[in-house]
Amino acid sequence: MSKSSKIRVVVILAVVIALYVIPQSPLTTDNTMRIGLLIALYCTLGLMWNLMAGYTGMVSLGQQIFIGIAGYNVAVFATTFGLPFWAGMFCGAGISVLLSVALSFLLFRMKGMYFAIATWITSEALKIIFTSWEFVNMGGGMTIKLRPYPDVFELYYISLTLVIGAFLVVFFVLNSRIGLGLKAMRDDDDASAAMGVNIFRAKLLCFMISGFVTGLCGALFYINQGSIFPGPGFGISWTVAAVFIVIIGGIGTITGPIVGAIIYVFLSEFLSQYQGYSMIILGVIAIAVILGLPYGIVGTIERKFGFEVLSTRRTMKNLLSGGRANVDYSRGRDLRVSK
């Protein structure tokens, strides 16, 4: 490992340890824990939308499918069957994967906007089904009953572990051979197919991962919330949040969603006093950022300084010299040489 990559690993580890240790200090309140938990979950939501839109060009407007399905799974498992929350959480995530496989025929047939709209229509259909399905109490929604109910500290730790896991998955995928193909697809999908990249398989893998992790995320959102209704559960605002977070942070960057999620959570806390206007204000902010920083905050900084916090660049030297390091962190230098 080079010196700069060692420093980077140390910094990342320090931040992770801090995130686990800080809540033990007597100064943290339930409210700071709640904010931390929301940032972790929204960051996960953004990461998973980014894995699809930022790396494969699949713009999903249906992430709420996975949120709602998993939320309802938790509610049914806990309230109806008296089972622990993690049972509903993993069952919900599993069903989300199955749904993404079932929806994958859309990937075969539909490109761009058509895929986006098809995912949205699916979520609207689910909303209608759940509103008229007696088993889930129709439009009346469900309360999640758990004994003991996990407290905000417990949920924070689970969410923190989830977001770290989500980062590891994204990083692992991008560093795998499929990730190499994804980067090629992002630049030119026809040409990547002509170089042997199996586009459908790569897209399906990302869609499945996105479904699974977004499902886990949705379950935790609703355990934190305590009750679920079909309207908000399958509401487009989940995807709107994900898009906002990724665009602000920087689409196609690994670390952009962290910045995006922090901004999103603080903004929506602040805007909660302006009920009804908050969506408009978020929209205006998103447009302003897009106009000023077209690559988002992280994307713009990376371009400006030729620096990537987490890079997936392969170099000939590293791959030929053996060693485990097929990740090279020196992209910055390369970028500047080439300009």
């Binding site: 190499l180 193909g181 630049d187 030119d188 791959l319 030929l320």
Partner: peptide, 27 residues
């Protein structure tokens, strides 16, 4: 070309995905 990838990575894509090598062999 895959504009945002290096020259080497461009060819690596075809060696890995086209010819079916591992990244190391493909290099």
């Amino acid at each position: 070309p895959f504009e945002n990838m290096s020259v080497f990575e461009n060819v690596l894509v075809s060696a890995v995905h086209g010819a079916g090598h591992t990244e190391r062999q493909g290099a």
